[in-house]
Amino acid sequence: MNKLFALIAITLATASCMQLEVKPGRVIGDTVDAGKEAYQSIQRSRRGEEERGFSHKTSYDSAISNAANIAGCKEELMEVVSVSDLVVSQVISESSEVLVKDGDKTIYCAMRAVVRPKA
């Protein structure tokens, strides 16, 4: 048990920004998950990588399907990232949705990714 508390203390001391939310009944599991996230964050920073969020919005083309519109939005998002001085080494999560406002549709897509500077 002392090793667990030492691991938690080291994790919290070395992490630059960390939020630990412990739910009743999941104390050990949540603590282990937080430790893993902190470890991955430290490893990424040592390799010169960091986790970032990106988003993009584009107009809806009614001549093609929702799936094609979403794929186009994601392609444009990746182009925006590739033009920057960053390279995506891992995509953590992606999301997309069709937004309707005053009868006009737009596509919104977002991703959370691990990036590193271009060599």
Results as ranks from 00 to 15, higher is better:
1 M>I: 13
2 N>W: 01
3 K>M: 10
3 K>F: 09
4 L>E: 07
4 L>V: 08
7 L>K: 08
7 L>V: 11
8 I>L: 13
10 I>N: 11
11 T>Y: 08
11 T>S: 15
13 A>Y: 12
14 T>F: 11
17 C>E: 14
17 C>D: 14
17 C>A: 12
19 Q>D: 14
19 Q>G: 11
19 Q>L: 10
23 K>P: 00
23 K>T: 07
23 K>V: 09
26 R>K: 09
28 I>P: 01
29 G>A: 15
30 D>P: 01
32 V>M: 05
34 A>Y: 10
35 G>A: 00
35 G>F: 01
37 E>K: 15
38 A>V: 09
43 Q>N: 13
44 R>F: 05
47 R>C: 07
48 G>C: 03
50 E>H: 07
57 K>V: 13
66 N>T: 07
67 A>Y: 09
68 A>C: 03
69 N>M: 01
69 N>T: 02
72 G>D: 11
76 E>A: 15
80 V>F: 06
80 V>G: 02
80 V>K: 12
81 V>M: 02
82 S>D: 13
84 S>F: 10
85 D>N: 15
89 S>V: 15
89 S>F: 14
91 V>G: 05
92 I>L: 06
94 E>G: 03
98 V>L: 05
102 D>A: 07
105 K>I: 03
105 K>V: 00
105 K>P: 01
106 T>R: 02
106 T>K: 04
108 Y>A: 03
108 Y>G: 02
110 A>C: 06
110 A>H: 15
111 M>I: 05
112 R>V: 05
112 R>Q: 14
112 R>M: 08
112 R>S: 12
113 A>G: 01
113 A>D: 04
114 V>I: 13
114 V>S: 10
118 K>Y: 10
